[in-house]
């Protein structure tokens, strides 16, 4: 299915957000946070969230900031 991933078009056969994170190489302890369609998606919810065509996914990590 087609999704948006961090602002870019992407294709995935992952069924859930957790599956997508796994495909991207993030293990369950990875230091990341997620949002779907502008709403925060907690780590605990990722396995239950069924990806839908057109979903807009954000995956973020710690970064320098001011």
């Amino acid at each position: 299915m087609n999704i948006r991933l961090n602002g870019a078009d992407a294709e995935t056969d992952a069924k859930t957000l957790a599956g997508l994170c796994d495909q991207l190489g993030y293990d369950s302890d990875a230091k990341i946070a997620t949002a779907v369609n502008g709403e925060f998606m907690a780590k605990m919810q990722r396995a239950n969230y069924q990806l839908a065509n057109g979903d807009d996914i954000e995956i973020v990590a710690p970064r320098q900031g001011g």
């Binding site: 991933l5 961090n6 992407a10 990875a30 946070a33 995956i59 973020v60 990590a61 710690p62 970064r63």
Partner: peptide, 24 residues
């Protein structure tokens, strides 16, 4: 202060995740 940001590697499926682990 710190921030959260997209990781370049995650903008393309199939690339391995870099993650902010080093900075963290």
């Amino acid at each position: 202060t710190i921030s959260v940001r997209r990781e370049a590697a995650t903008t393309q499926l199939g690339q391995s995740a870099q993650s902010g682990e080093g900075f963290w």
